Lab assay of single mutants.
Amino acid sequence: SLEGTEKASWLGEQPQFWSKTQVLDWISYQVEKNKYDASAIDFSRCDMDGATLCNCALEELRLVFGPLGDQLHAQLRDLTSS
């Protein structure tokens, strides 16, 4: 749920159509929501749009996002199937 936050830029759009900015917004949101240590994320490797993100295998997401990769992968699957 997104109570208390302004409507996120990526909400209501299919992930494969996200811009690079929307991807970063979504990642930041997941980091906050999961109380994850953002210093463990290599943000220089997050410079990708939604289509690229959706094409990432779980292993790739783990490389870039560490333990949060599993969470991101699961969330993406939910978003693309809805």
Rank of each mutant, 00 (worst) to 15 (best):
E3V: 09
C54M: 13
Q71I: 14
N34L: 07
C54T: 12
S44R: 11
C46A: 12
D42H: 03
L2D: 02
D49K: 08
A74V: 08
S39G: 13
M48W: 11
E13M: 15
S9D: 09
A57H: 04
V23Y: 03
K20N: 14
G66S: 00
A8S: 14
L11G: 10
C46T: 09
R45P: 05
A74G: 14
E3D: 15
L76A: 01
F65Y: 05
A51Y: 10
Y36L: 10
L53F: 08
V64E: 12
R77I: 15
A40R: 14
D25F: 02
F65I: 06
N34C: 07
C54V: 12
V23T: 11
P67T: 08
S1V: 07
D70G: 07
W26A: 00
V23W: 00
T5P: 13
A38K: 12
S9P: 04
W26C: 00
L63P: 03
L79R: 14
L76M: 12
L2C: 07
L24A: 13
Q22R: 02
D25S: 09
S9H: 05
F43C: 13
K20C: 08
C56D: 01
P67V: 11
S28I: 08
P67W: 08
D78T: 13
Q75L: 07
V31T: 05
F17V: 08
S1T: 14
T52Y: 07
L72K: 01
T5Y: 03
Y36M: 12
F43E: 07
L79M: 12
V64W: 08
G50E: 00
T21S: 15
D70C: 02
K35S: 15
D70E: 13
L63E: 09
L2N: 15
R45T: 09
Q75I: 12
N34R: 08
D70A: 08
E32I: 14
K7G: 13
C56H: 04
A8C: 15
R62C: 07
S44P: 08
I41M: 03
Q71E: 12
K7M: 11
Q16D: 10
L11R: 07
I41F: 05
H73I: 02
A57G: 13
E32V: 06
R77S: 13
D78M: 05
Q75F: 03
C46M: 15
L24M: 07
E59A: 12
T80L: 14
A40E: 15
E59M: 08
W10H: 04
S39W: 08
W26S: 00
T52H: 06
G69A: 09
P67Q: 07
Q71K: 12
L79Q: 11
L63H: 03
V23G: 00
M48Y: 10
C56A: 13
L2S: 11
T5M: 07
S44N: 02
A51C: 04
Q14C: 14
G69Y: 02
L79Y: 13
L58R: 11
I27G: 00
W18H: 00
Q22H: 03
G4P: 08
Y29L: 04
E6K: 07
E3S: 11
V64P: 03
S1A: 15
N55T: 06
A8P: 10
Q22C: 04
Y36N: 04
M48Q: 02
G12P: 08
L61F: 15
W26G: 00
Q16K: 15
V31Q: 03
I41R: 04
E13K: 03
D37F: 04
F17W: 14
R62E: 05
K7H: 11
I27S: 00
C56F: 02
M48P: 00
E32C: 03
R77G: 11
G66Q: 00
A57Q: 10
Q30F: 00
F43M: 14
A40N: 06
N55M: 10
P67Y: 11
T52P: 00
D49P: 02
E13S: 13
Y29H: 14
D42Y: 03
A74L: 14
K35F: 13
F43H: 06
T5I: 14
D42P: 03
E32K: 08
K20P: 12
E6F: 09
A74D: 09
I27C: 09
D70I: 15
E59N: 03
R45G: 09
G69Q: 01
E6W: 12
D49C: 00
Q75V: 07
T80M: 09
E6V: 12
D42A: 06
C54D: 01
C54R: 04
G50S: 00
R62Q: 15
E60Y: 13
C46N: 08
A51L: 09
Q22D: 03
E59Q: 07
T80H: 15
Q71M: 08
Y36V: 13
Q22K: 03
S9W: 05
G12L: 08
F17K: 15
D47A: 08
S44L: 11
K33H: 10
T80R: 07
D25V: 03
G12M: 09
Q16P: 06
K35D: 15
G12N: 15
W10R: 03
F65V: 09
L76F: 03
Q14H: 04
V31M: 11
L58A: 08
K7D: 13
T21R: 11
A57W: 02
S19E: 05
Q14A: 08
I27R: 02
D47P: 06
K33F: 05
W26E: 00
I41C: 11
S1Y: 06
S1P: 04
G69F: 02
L68E: 02
H73N: 07
T5G: 06
Y29Q: 07
P67I: 07
L53P: 01
G12T: 15
L79E: 11
W10V: 05
C46V: 14
R45W: 12
A38T: 10
D49A: 04
A8I: 04
Q71T: 13
G69C: 05
L24T: 09
D49Q: 02
A74Y: 08
R77K: 03
A74E: 06
G66E: 01
H73R: 07
C56L: 12
N34D: 02
L63Q: 11
L61Q: 01
S28A: 11
D25K: 03
E32M: 14
L24R: 05
P67E: 13
G12S: 14
A38R: 10
G4L: 08
F65W: 03
L58M: 13
L63K: 15
Y29I: 05
I41E: 14
E3K: 15
A51R: 13
S81E: 05
S81N: 15
F43A: 09
D78H: 10
S28H: 12
R62V: 09
A51Q: 15
T52D: 05
A57E: 15
M48V: 05
W26I: 00
P67S: 11
T21K: 07
E60G: 08
F17Y: 13
C54Y: 04
K7N: 14
L63F: 07
L53K: 01
L61K: 02
K35W: 09
D78E: 07
L58Q: 12
E59R: 09
R62T: 04
T52I: 02
L58Y: 02
F17I: 11
F17M: 08
G4F: 15
Y36E: 15
S44E: 14
D37W: 03
F43T: 06
T21A: 08
S1R: 04
E6T: 11
T52N: 12
S9Y: 04
D49V: 04
W10Q: 03
D42E: 14
Q14E: 10
F65G: 01
M48G: 00
H73W: 06
F65P: 00
V31K: 15
C54I: 12
L58E: 03
A51F: 11
G69W: 02
A38C: 15
A38P: 07
Y29P: 00
W18C: 00
Q30L: 05
T52S: 12
S39Y: 06
D37I: 03
G69S: 11
P15G: 00
S19L: 02
E6A: 12
T80D: 01
F17G: 13
K35N: 14
A74H: 07
D70K: 15
E60Q: 08
D78K: 09
L11T: 08
P67M: 09
S39A: 10
W18R: 00
D78W: 09
S39L: 08
G66K: 01
V64C: 09
I41G: 04
Q16I: 14
S39R: 09
L58P: 13
K20G: 03
P15Q: 01
K35V: 09
S39H: 02
